[in-house]
Design a protein around this nucleic acid. Structure first.
Lengths: 351, 351
DNA sequence: TACTTTTGCGAAAACGATTTCGCAAATTTT
DNA sequence: AAAATTTGCGAAATCGTTTTCGCAAAAGTA
């Protein structure tokens, strides 16, 4: 590794000008083959590494992309990030990860921060507090490309990657219904988030198709997506004190699923006897939950990869991109014990 | 936010030179009070943001610190990172997170990458493959400050932050012994990692103090720290086919704990009846595991904060730092069902 | 031979900020 | 009133790279 060597040092050593060295290293046609090999050999021998800060200043880019997610201590997002890095590093982009902790204010600050540090592009999953997306519109207008993932806004026209939330929710709810559960509650995030709306729609469709009337009391919104335990506690408590208690619950996101399960334990509610549960989560430990947890898994790694490919395609496109795409990837329902109805009529008949 | 405005634009608008503007913004004594307010007001009104790339080039720093950890899809490290960010952001440092995925080669590459991009400092937790630490010695010699966390090398003289691994392991093993378990296995990472050695030592001390002979067959090393399931499977399978099967197992790290639990389930081994388990993990879901999981929790958030404070103290120190410190923070044993011995003589007597 | 074109390279500007130095004008000291 | 000092500001260098432009020498064409 030695000392840091610059293009200037090479020029001096080889009695060349800095411009010649720079061009030689970048395979300019202006430079003769001999000079090129001369320079390149010297650079290789002395382990020359271009200074990316200087390059960034000159070229106006930073070869880095910023990721803005609600949290990273959550298997869904950490898997997404792994996917992002797998592509970004291959293309020599640096990845800067920032968390909003579900706060709108932090999200605004973070976006401006990245803009002013001139990252080349943004991959974003909205905070659960975000209704207004002007901060994205503004930086986008100023030339910063954005790709949204998972929690995406309608209001911004750009590439988006989401799971098939509608179908995932529909299948999970159908599964609960087929198991024989009749009164299925739904615990979800704030109602303006795309994932909330889509998953809610899938839930409602499944109920409709089975002629189960929709009960508004069964739908609980948690503003912080499961990050604040008390919020979820209140939701579960409300459900359990209804005159007609639900017999199953469908949870809409990663943290909501684990938090709800934890609270059911705390309230000593037997699962699935007193309350069955199924939900969206990419937890790597769903199989060792008590009971093992029926999950809708999103293709998190693939979603991260896809978003990054989309972003880099914008970054490397010669002409401004105007046709944007929304990719919808399939979810995967993994049936475990938390949604089993052992003594239901339906399962008795179906045998 | 508008267009990006530079110091040059301000100079032009105010009929001043760029140097005057620069100095006015940085409170230079050379600039009169009127000019200062003039410049500052204009800058504020037009939301001037200094370009950090240009600043970095000029000042030779980047106001950013890099974090190198084995993985982020692991609650221990994601909590550590939250701690790191809480301090770094307050001090206006950017945090760049990179994962080694427990690979030595990736670790070497990553270190060099960060060095060449001139980050200001490194916070590192070693990969499980890392025996040789020359790559750190070299960049450190070239002026890059490093703070190690959790998995730390002896060979590098710098600040370090670890949990009290010895005591944490000792307490967990003592707990298993007090519950009445006699044959306690230990599943851990590669044996040259600091955490492996320290936790192993705590385990051995607890056995010694209770006159339980050490059985080498009961100690299993998994080179990838639980990332490769087959490796852990082999370890557990070995243990279960011993003539004298262990009746409890103490797992040494976050991913090892969850993976081992998962495999015990897979092998349909009843916990804790056939095999009790306790282990290091910062999983946020330990309470909903089946059975609820007895854990040694590290103060991950605090460890991240502490490491960052140490690093920034080096960065902001006027004179080279020569006295380095190793901070040891206490762990927390949380007793749950996975380590309960319902029918043991000991617990019968103790009642 | 005289002219045009190509080839290979260097000088210099540029990116945006910081900092050293120099220089007038204003102020203070003798 | 002359000399010395302070004050307030601008010119220019600098960080390391890329890129435009210009200019010789070499090669090709008439």
């Amino acid at each position: 590794m030695r000392e840091k060597i610059t293009i200037k040092d090479i020029a001096k050593a080889l009695q060349l000008s800095v411009s010649t060295v720079s061009k030689a290293l970048r395979d300019s046609y202006e430079i003769s083959a001999e000079t090129q090999t001369l320079v390149k050999d010297y650079a290789a021998k002395h382990r020359y590494q271009p200074n990316p800060i200087a390059q960034g200043l000159r070229k106006g880019n930073s070869k880095s992309i910023a990721v803005i997610v609600p949290n990273i201590d959550n298997n869904f997002f950490s898997q997404v990030i792994n996917g992002i890095e797998s592509i970004a590093h291959k293309k020599e982009y640096n990845v800067i990860i920032t968390q909003t902790h579900e706060s709108f204010d932090r999200e605004v600050l973070t976006v401006q921060h990245h803009f002013s540090r001139s990252v080349d592009g943004l991959i974003v999953s909205l905070s659960s507090e975000t209704e207004n997306t002007d901060h994205f519109a503004e930086v986008q207008k100023n030339g910063l490309p954005i790709v949204f993932l998972d929690r995406v806004p309608d209001s911004i026209n750009t590439h988006k990657v989401i799971a098939n939330n509608f179908l995932g929710a529909y299948e999970a709810t159908q599964h609960l219904i087929h198991q024989g559960f009749k009164r299925i509650a739904h615990i979800t995030s704030t109602n303006f988030l795309s994932i909330t709306k889509e998953r809610l729609a899938g839930y409602i469709r499944a109920l409709e198709e089975n002629d189960i009337p929709l009960n508004e009391d069964y739908i609980k919104y948690c503003a912080h997506g499961g990050m604040i335990k008390d919020e979820v506690y209140a939701a579960v408590y409300d459900l359990m004190t209804l005159r007609k208690k639900p017999d199953a619950v469908f949870t809409a996101s990663d943290r909501l699923s684990t938090t709800t399960l934890s609270i059911l334990h705390q309230l000593k509610i037997k699962i699935p006897e007193q309350m069955a549960i199924a939900g969206f989560t990419n937890s790597i430990s769903a199989d060792i939950f008590n009971p093992s947890f029926t999950t809708v898994k999103q293709p998190a790694y693939l979603m991260g990869k896809t978003a990054t490919e989309m972003l880099i395609s914008i970054l490397e496109s010669k002409r401004p991109v105007v046709n944007f795409e929304k990719k919808i990837l399939d979810t995967n329902l993994i049936i475990m014990d938390s949604s089993k109805k052992y003594h239901s009529k339906v399962s008795a008949i179906s045998r």
